[in-house]
Design a binder for these strands. Structure first.
Lengths: 115, 115
DNA sequence: AATCCATATTCCCATGCAGCGATGAAAGCG
DNA sequence: CGCTTTCATCGCTGCATGGGAATATGGATT
């Protein structure tokens, strides 16, 4: 009967919820979102990302590690530098859904201009 | 020409990135995900959520507030108690995308059993 | 080997925040 | 009016983490 997981109609346990939360957390930071936005334009070296988003190199490296370990960004050694790129197109879908929701809510706030 | 925002091919500024990050942050916590999962089954009072996920009432109230302020959960006074429900179906899409991604990555980790 | 460059890592500090206990506030009910 | 129920809020503590400065690592060039 394969009672593996799935004990309560697909309700997730604590460990799995932590997994999900951990992945969401990768997106829950302006600096990391800025990095993702930069990578949306294609592969960039770490140095290019640093100059693009204007924070310290140490910080970019650290945030890139978080994104990589979340399976969101991919690293590739290319000659002397390291080239980064989006590892999973789900990034775009997630960001689009979230942005659309924000825009909807903003419209709802601003809409009552009707007179 | 409506030059509102949109200064660099749709790249978001710091404030807007913070908005996006803030919304993602609402999902970046196991307790809040457990609450959302419980509400996925329909409206629940605060008390029902408390007994369902097994943490303090104070904590549930606080996390519900965060979810409500993020526009993710809706509160409605019903008699003596407060009924909560999912305010935006985008919740389901987001969670589904994230879960699918995790399952894909897990499969990729477990797959190389080939010999 | 010495050196330069691009990244990664370590140490440190400050902030944020989840969780608990206690208290407050507000609506039903005797 | 008190009393209970239901939920929200406050104060607090411990832990996680974003960010900077300094340092380590590792490849390339000379």
């Amino acid at each position: 009967m394969k009672a593996k997981g799935r004990k309560d109609e697909g309700r997730l346990g604590g460990d799995q919820l932590e997994r999900v939360a951990h992945l969401f957390k990768a997106f829950a930071e302006p600096t990391r979102l800025a990095i993702l936005q930069e990578l949306k334009g294609g592969s960039r070296t770490v140095g290019e990302v640093v100059t693009a988003i204007g924070t310290s190199q140490a910080n970019v490296s650290k945030q890139l590690r978080i994104l990589r370990e979340a399976g969101v960004v991919k690293h590739e050694k290319q000659g002397t530098s390291v080239s980064c790129s989006i590892a999973d197109p789900v990034v775009f879908e997630l960001c689009e859904l979230v942005c659309d929701k924000i825009n909807r809510d903003l419209a709802r706030d601003t809409a009552p201009l009707r007179f």
